[in-house]
């Protein structure tokens, strides 16, 4: 019995991308974090990130967030454009551009006014731009480029922890992460099942460290994707597992970043645009080289 991931063509990739973006928008609506729900925030955070310095220099965040009417128009437009791109499979460049810019502005605005530069929103800020490219060959290069960007996110985190800061080899780290991220929850919910689970893991630091080590090594496994696409069917599941464990133990919600997981799905052969194509381009070379 064999299994395989779904094979996408350009239209399929667009529908999945903008469909995922729609769900992100719904999630943000339910968690009161769309621009019109921010209630005209007053403080913002640029940190030492020049992207945000430039963004605030333009005055756009204030324009969007300070005025209720403008905020409503922005959020409504983002919803309509996302749905339009989903229904038209990203075929209209003007809509794709507006949608992509909208998501970029939303991501920068939310990250500024929430005082936390979340990586999770970066996926939807970047991926829609891939559909600005019309020609099939160029689109595939762009899609492949976003795939490398996604692999880089994990690879860079692994390199940072293993080679630059050596935090991978700091034995208390597993228990420390759970302890500091869950301390408030544990104190406020002493009878919760999760509190019991966290307490057990914290009091067994070797178990916590092995869990931490496993997660970081899984991040490191994504480096394989730079050399071959043949393992994408396995690499596809690593971010899902990684973010699920993070939700359970580290109190961070990164599922929105899984929109970039779509780039690990195989694309159908170049000449066949129909969904009936059942062969993939796994044999073609990848970033460094495909053996």
């Amino acid at each position: 019995m064999s299994w395989s991931l779904p094979i996408l063509n350009r239209d399929g990739a667009a529908r999945w991308t903008f469909g995922f973006a729609f769900f992100i928008l719904v999630y943000r609506l339910l968690t009161h974090s769309l621009v019109h729900q921010m209630q005209q925030p007053v403080l913002y955070e640029t940190d030492f990130d020049y992207t945000y310095w430039l963004y605030h220099f333009t005055g756009v965040p204030r324009l969007l967030a300070d005025n209720k009417v403008v905020a409503w128009i922005f959020d409504s437009s983002l919803l309509c454009l996302t749905l339009y791109c989903w229904t038209t499979a990203g075929r209209h460049r003007w809509a794709v551009l507006c949608c992509a810019i909208g998501w970029t502005l939303y991501g920068l605005t939310y990250n500024s006014y929430s005082h936390h530069h979340n990586v999770s929103i970066i996926g939807v800020m970047v991926l829609p731009y891939a559909f600005l490219v019309r020609k099939e060959r160029k689109f595939r290069l762009m899609w492949e480029g976003v795939r490398y960007f996604y692999l880089y996110i994990f690879a860079d985190a692994f390199v940072h922890k293993a080679l630059l800061t050596h935090s991978l080899f700091f034995l208390p780290n597993g228990a420390e992460f759970i302890k500091t991220n869950q301390a408030l929850f544990m104190v406020q919910h002493p009878d919760s099942l999760f509190t019991g689970l966290y307490a057990w893991v914290i009091t067994h630091p070797l178990v916590a460290y092995l869990g931490f080590l496993t997660m970081i090594l899984l991040q490191g496994c994504m480096i394989i994707g730079f050399f071959t696409k043949r393992c994408d069917r396995w690499l596809f599941w690593i971010p899902i597992l990684f973010h699920t464990v993070n939700i359970l133990f580290i109190d961070v919600f990164f599922y929105e970043l899984l929109i970039l997981n779509l780039t690990l799905l195989p694309l159908s052969r170049e000449k066949e645009a129909s969904p009936a194509a059942d062969e993939t381009l796994e044999d073609l070379p990848v970033g460094i080289a495909d053996p």
Binding site: L108, A157, H160, T165, N173
Partner: peptide
Amino acid sequence: GHKSSCEITPALVPGMYAGMEQRTEDDFLV
């Protein structure tokens, strides 16, 4: 970004990366 330790969205956001610290106490805002 790596050389200057500056964030450059979306190229580098190192603020999410693990550190090496053992805390004996913490303050939370409730």
